[in-house]
Computed example of a mutant assay.
Amino acid sequence: MKIRDVWVEIFSQKVDLADFGRGRDLVVIRIITDEGIDGISYVPGFSHIPTSLSNALKEIVGGVVRDNIVGMDPTSIEAIWDKLFHRLTRWGRRGIVMHAISGIDMALWDIIGKISGLPLWKLLGGYKEDVPAYANVAHHLPPKELAKKALEYYEKGFRAFKIRGARTEVSFEEATERIKAIRDTLGYDVKLMVDMNGSLDTHQGIEYLRRWERYDLYWIEEPLHPDNLEGYKRIKRYSNTMIAAGEQHSTVHDFRILVEEELVDIVQPDASWCGGISEWLKIWSLATAYGVPVAPHALHPIHAHLVAAKPNTMWVEYFYPDNPLYSLVYEVFEEPRESLYAERGFLRAPKSPGLGLKLKRSN
């Protein structure tokens, strides 16, 4: 079997997300083989700020990446990953180049699953079929309305919630009001996390955490810029709240520092950012060896496979179709329904071979 071609398509959606711009893109990648088995993946979350980088990703994947892998055996995943990483290292070991490698790698794993006739979670370990999830409540709403949205998700079975408190979106005072409103509405028997999107400096991070201790947050996510490693060391020293990070880190080399230096309590690798499923598995192995839990960021239809496959995985981050951050995935894909749509706070491990992704007929 050989790779015959690589197809890339951009899907767009108009939204109004304050600091995330007025549009979001999702990039679908399809690897076409000479034996009629295609691999499909996607890379989400390209915001229009004011324009999107999705066209750059399409250019890279459909150009230099395609030219380097056409003719190769799609089951030679390590060889393809290594070739792309070293050929493209000079132009980016993170960011847009790593998105391209990640998208290709995920599509290759889809092919492997289809060849074997197994869903990816079975192929990688088959640890559990029920996949726990927490609800992302990152809607840009006033505090009381945000609490109503969290209550709506609570009534659908969720018992853990994440909101945004980033300084690029809201003030400290409004972020605090969001936290207080949800605690007043749902009480303290649910887990509540706050995502800062790397928007604080070290001093602010320490101050925020101290002032929010009364609200018993389960974790604070990405309080600092991903490169502020010394800051993470200091904030960890002063915090009684768990620190989670990793969505903007790439490859096991970034995560080795987070884990070995004890900068975080929970790692959040995103297979569409960190280097694909291949690199995600290496990060999982590293974290597991050090006893650090893994809670992947976003990408719930794909991450459901990985959480289902392995122990030491906490849950997936779930976005309801009414959440504008990642609602586009529901417009692009119709399968796998088991890992697209949550029931009572859980996803189910998909039954279809590979990743099980299927584009809607209109696409």
Rank of each mutant, 00 (worst) to 15 (best):
G113C: 09
V64E: 10
V329M: 13
F20V: 00
K191H: 12
V252S: 11
K360Q: 14
K236W: 06
P132I: 08
F158P: 01
G23V: 11
R94Y: 13
H303F: 02
H253I: 13
I10F: 07
G62K: 03
P353G: 10
I163Y: 09
R30S: 07
G276W: 11
A107T: 02
A295C: 15
K282N: 09
S250W: 12
G92N: 10
G246S: 03
E152W: 13
T51A: 08
K148W: 02
P293T: 12
A295Q: 13
P293V: 12
G95Q: 09
R234Q: 10
E221D: 09
E9S: 15
G354C: 10
E145G: 00
R93I: 05
G126L: 03
P324K: 05
A138Y: 05
Y238R: 14
H303E: 05
E338T: 06
N136R: 00
Y188E: 02
P353N: 10
Y42M: 07
A245P: 05
M1D: 03
P132D: 05
V252C: 14
I283G: 09
W109S: 01
L359F: 12
S339N: 06
E221T: 05
V316P: 09
R337F: 05
G63I: 04
I182F: 01
A349K: 12
P44Q: 07
Y326C: 02
A79T: 13
H225W: 09
F255G: 09
Y218P: 01
Y318I: 08
S102C: 07
D19I: 13
Y341Q: 01
G205S: 03
F255A: 09
Y154P: 01
R344S: 15
L84P: 07
N197L: 08
L328Y: 08
A100N: 06
K149Q: 15
L224C: 08
E129F: 00
T176K: 14
I182Y: 01
L299S: 04
Y218N: 02
T185H: 00
R214F: 03
A245R: 02
A18R: 14
Y215C: 06
E207T: 14
Y42P: 12
D270A: 12
D216K: 15
I220E: 02
T202P: 06
